[in-house]
């Protein structure tokens, strides 16, 4: 991850253009969605699609304007993600994405244990003993808080049948 230290990975100019383009696409989707409804001004005020259509148009126009402005601007040395930062970010985000992906199957408690073990121990390089304590302790505290104290049950996955719980 740190083989190209501090080399710009994503210059700011490109990032600006890409994000503005993305927003314009979202605006396009809003327009498309609004056109499924009546977008006119009826006998007693605006119909359901009236405002969404105009919001979509404003979004497209404004983000395209941002896009043009940024495209015309001379490329500065601004950087959105630098090599090391990008690597760190990826290492932080990937376990999180994995957590979100497995929660529906494994439930929160097992997923949280695995996630914390990876994120704190492996990525954070915290000593293993400590990492294990955190990875075990946090779900335990959450379990007591949500299942018993607050009666706001979280999905438990295979842990449920294992402990004879829902």
């Amino acid at each position: 991850m740190s083989d190209v230290p501090q080399r710009p990975v994503l210059p700011r100019k490109q990032a600006e253009i890409a994000f503005a383009l993305l927003l314009a696409l979202v605006g396009g989707a809003v327009i498309a969605g609004a056109r499924e409804m009546d977008t006119g001004w009826g006998g007693s005020g605006p119909e359901a699609g009236y405002f969404p259509l105009r919001i979509g148009i404003v979004l497209v126009v404004a983000s395209l304007a941002v896009l043009v402005r940024e495209a015309l601007r001379p490329a500065g040395d601004g950087v959105l993600i630098a090599g090391i930062g990008g690597g760190r970010l990826a290492l932080f985000v990937l376990p999180l994405v994995a957590l979100v992906a497995v929660v529906p199957w494994l439930g929160f408690y097992i997923a949280a244990f695995a996630y914390l073990l990876v994120a704190v121990g492996l990525v954070g390089r915290v000593r293993w003993g400590r990492a294990l304590a955190i990875a075990l302790g946090t779900p335990l505290v959450l379990f007591v808080a949500f299942e018993y104290a607050f009666r706001a049950p979280l999905p438990k996955g295979p842990l449920g049948p294992l402990l004879g719980l829902p």
Binding site: F92, L99, L116, A119, V120, V123, G124, V126, I134
Partner: peptide, 8 residues
């Protein structure tokens, strides 16, 4: 390194 993942 510890609080980050917990906050997430």
């Amino acid at each position: 390194t510890i609080t980050g993942p917990i906050i997430a």
